[in-house]
Design a protein around this nucleic acid. Structure first.
Lengths: 220, 220
DNA sequence: ATCAAGTCTGAAACTTGTTCTAGATTAGCG
DNA sequence: CGCTAATCTAGAACAAGTTTCAGACTTGAT
């Protein structure tokens, strides 16, 4: 068993995806307790209900420790979202969408995710508000969420090697997805409206798929 | 000297609230000072630099008064955005976009707005973060901003009587616009990328020309 | 002019995110 | 085992948004 290597864990952020964080079992357990408490509190009352002192107490960790693991409330909630996204990606993989066109499949996938969020609207509120409120210090984590979302959409499209135009369409779909969620969460758009918006933006996909589904010729 | 005359909010501000109470001149002046201080502080350091105590001091108003005028920091910043949007709408009206298609004109308009925001990135940060962070208690004001944005886009399209499909497209464009701004502000997307996203989503407009008897590209 | 109701002010208090400190605990190591 | 560095804990302290309150000032009506 290789001894755990300490790579100057002083100034770097503790729990991140990219570089392998050398966490012991107890640390991993702490991290998990924190994320669980975060999701639980968020499910109750949304963004405001996730109070750092409560998260700390609820996960049996000192406040200072909580901040060592997640340097801000937004970091914590974005990490919570990463966690949930992973779970959802697994779920979606099991039953792939059945539409005929890529646009249909993407819309179906997003609507399925949307229905999942509707079951926990407060949790959705906390995560989405954190995502859009995040400033530059959270960019790496937010970017990771964005990449994960992109993967899910590309999965639904059934593409391995998207063209630049298709990536643009996917980005616009993600924009619409996030913003539509916000309008729904803040009570300014109905569920039906979100559905329409998603279906509308998904038509963009058809624009980027002229006739040939797979065209290896790609130039950047 | 006669008592202060109540000023109807019609000259410079088209109704924010349906039942907006008439403000005296001194009150109108206070409101204006507050909005000015808000914009000024925001221009310096963005969302975080707009501190309620500083806004109060800077606009020569007690903290309690500030909160009477704007019940929260987010309310204040959304109102600041309404103010700026109005100004921008005026500016845009003077030089309408010159594209051949509706999609081109909308993209040009949004890019023009984007360039204006680039000149005051901190102000943009404060306003956009407030907009997307706003909870239900700010819905009416946020909705007002949204309607104003819609008007600007429909103006650019040159439409008086948009079809439901066109309104959907406009909503999706707005979603993309807000979300793309956020990714730019948080340093996760370049200016070029925002431009591409805007141009991409504007193509949706071309997809929606069902009800009009007039056929493709024609200059009005 | 005068009074009642509403508004503004200054200051303190409260809330919650965040930081800091001193001491206890743990992990890796010879 | 005993050492050292890192980590964890409890708790105070700080920062900024928000609320509250008593008293002074305005406003509108008599």
């Amino acid at each position: 068993m290789p001894a755990e290597v300490k790579v100057e864990a002083k100034s770097a952020r503790p729990a991140a995806q990219p570089a392998s964080p050398p966490l012991t079992e107890r640390q991993e357990a702490r991290r998990r307790r924190i994320l669980h408490a975060s999701a639980q509190l968020a499910s109750r009352g949304g963004f405001d209900a996730v109070q750092m002192r409560e998260v700390a107490e609820s996960s049996q960790v000192a406040l200072g420790t909580l901040y060592r693991y997640f340097p801000s409330k937004v970091h914590l909630l974005v990490a919570t979202m990463q966690d949930q996204l992973e779970h959802m990606h697994g779920t979606l993989r099991k039953k792939p969408p059945a539409g005929d066109t890529a646009a249909e499949r993407v819309a179906e996938t997003l609507m399925r995710a949307f229905r999942a969020l509707q079951r926990e609207p407060h949790l959705a509120d906390a995560m989405v508000r954190a995502l859009t409120f995040a400033d530059r210090s959270v960019s790496p984590e937010v970017d990771q969420v964005s990449r994960q979302t992109t993967v899910i959409i590309l999965d639904a499209m059934g593409l391995d090697d998207p063209s630049p135009a298709q990536l643009s369409a996917v980005r616009v779909i993600e924009h619409t997805w996030h913003s539509a969620l916000i309008t729904w969460l803040s009570g300014r758009a109905s569920i039906a409206q979100v559905k329409i918006d998603i279906e509308t933006v998904c038509r963009l996909i058809d624009l980027t798929e002229p006739t040939e589904p797979t065209e290896p010729t790609e130039k950047l």
